[in-house]
Design a protein around this nucleic acid. Structure first.
Length: 200
DNA sequence: CATAGGATCGCCT
DNA sequence: GGCGATCCTATGT
């Protein structure tokens, strides 16, 4: 059920990005549980990937989290407004990560509506990395949280569950990542994965 | 210390 | 489809 550390410690970040499709991303913020089914991800392949924050082994206060062991949350602020949630993968010191780009709301929909100040859940409610964090209550201050325990810290916990959803290869679309034009030829790598669920 | 820019979103036309 | 919001982070002086 709860994804074990071994899931994240595997060496192939692209495979992990595929495997995360259909898994449940769960948060518990101040006692409020919300969750969504992951249906879009992007792999960021560490020091050799021009699109990665850790390209060429860059280490800064922000990216240091990427060098933690697989199963750690890497959350950072984008465009001054959006917290983007990533799953760190691979062994300690190897800065691979998977960006979660969209989820289908599952548990705690009422809480999500309150967080977004909307009155109903539309089809694109959890589509987009900024929206994923918004509806699940994830903030960039949550960077560094351990995803392999439900305990987190006193106010926040994030984890991922396997509910046994089987995804056929034909239900996955891959393609280039979004918003990484600056990455030259690496911008063309097919590191983005989408789960084509029923109705979408 | 100053500055430029970003793995986006929502509202406007 | 075009654009402004909004502020942290990284880098340079």
């Amino acid at each position: 059920m709860l994804l074990p550390a071994a899931f994240y410690l595997r060496p192939d970040v692209v495979q992990i990005a595929r495997d995360l499709l259909g898994k449940h991303l769960v948060t518990c913020m101040n006692g409020e549980i919300t969750s969504g089914i992951i249906c879009e991800t992007e792999a960021y392949a560490g020091i050799t990937d021009k699109a990665s924050h850790a390209y060429q082994g860059r280490r800064t206060l922000r990216t240091e989290i990427m060098y933690h062991k697989g199963g750690t949350a890497y959350v950072y602020l984008c465009y001054g407004v959006h917290s983007l949630f990533n799953v760190v993968t691979n062994q300690k010191e190897i800065p691979h990560a998977v960006l979660i780009r969209s989820v289908i709301p599952e548990k705690g929909k009422k809480i999500m509506l309150a967080r977004t100040r909307k009155d109903r859940i539309t089809k694109d409610f959890g589509a987009g990395p900024g929206k994923v964090s918004k509806i699940l209550g994830i903030h960039y201050s949550h960077t560094g949280l351990d995803l392999t325990t439900k305990n987190g810290n006193s106010t926040a916990a994030i984890w991922i569950e396997n509910h046994g959803i089987q995804i056929q290869t034909g239900d996955i679309r891959s393609g280039p990542r979004i918003g990484v034009d600056y990455a030259g030829e690496d911008a063309l790598l097919p590191y983005r994965f989408r789960f084509l669920h029923a109705g979408g």
